[in-house]
Design a binder for these strands. Sequence first.
DNA 1: ATATCTTACGTTGATATCAACTCAATATTC
DNA 2: GAATATTGAGTTGATATCAACGTAAGATAT
Lengths: 157, 157
Amino acid sequence: MSKGKIVSFETTREVHDRCLCFATQRAARALARRFDAALRPVGLTSGQYSLLMSLNRPEPPSLGAVAELLGMDRTTLTANLKPLLRNGWANSAVDPDDRRGRRLSLTAKGRKVLTAALPIWRRTHAEIDAALPPPLAPRALQAGLRALAVPEGVAGR
Amino acid sequence: MSKGKIVSFETTREVHDRCLCFATQRAARALARRFDAALRPVGLTSGQYSLLMSLNRPEPPSLGAVAELLGMDRTTLTANLKPLLRNGWANSAVDPDDRRGRRLSLTAKGRKVLTAALPIWRRTHAEIDAALPPPLAPRALQAGLRALAVPEGVAGR
DNA sequence: ATATCTTACGTTGATATCAACTCAATATTC
DNA sequence: GAATATTGAGTTGATATCAACGTAAGATAT
């Protein structure tokens, strides 16, 4: 009771009402739980689904490129890749043109899992879209989340 | 090449453009990184800040109540609490009225850390708010995220 | 009062997340 | 061509996340 004032309960309410970081974390947890449950029948988590989906492209991407797309640390991606490689869904091969790098690709088995998961994603996501209150268009939310995901906060840089 | 069709690259683009789960996870990671960096001087992570803040209330809440408020699993909260208890920022005491339960409270030290963190939160959050493109009002985003965080998806059970 | 049920937590095991550090291959500079 | 810088990944250590399982206290039924 010497230096600074104590944070009031009013302030606590303000933080919980306004903090986009907190709101985003909470929504992220809820959505992950929901998709985890929906995708369980095909043996995927929500994160694994997103990761596998981002490997489904004409040219096998590098690890760094995928990490940037997903907005996650490279080392996190390395860790997340392990279960996919272990299950034989994805492949990681040294890039012959630049032996520092690796090229990530889906295996036939991975494509099969992804094919099985797609209708589940469509159904679950349609439910979520449909249940959003009218003024909260899914596309607007998408745009907002995209803005929040910009590296240096939001301002760009 | 017998059973199902292969997921096309077009579909992959559709998923990445529309998936609110993916967009929310990515935004959550970006915001957590940003607040983690901003709060580092006071020794808090973004999650620890939110948790400490939610303990700042007149009546010491139970563990379950806090978990529900934060939208996280009870066992996750137990884990997240450990560093706070270890640092002497929070206290967990058996509820005398119901010895199954526990009451979580801030210590004087915890209040002090929270007081130091508050102006950092205000500054960082103001930056984020200010940088959101005009049509994406922070309050609208808040509402959207709140809707997404409803347990049973969005529809409310 | 005893047996059963429910509630509030904790523990364990698997995965996710990132900062800090290290290593190896390529690129640049001199 | 040797020294330095840059780039692409992996490793380690700390925390976060949740499902599955376990435990103890309170509530209910018989």
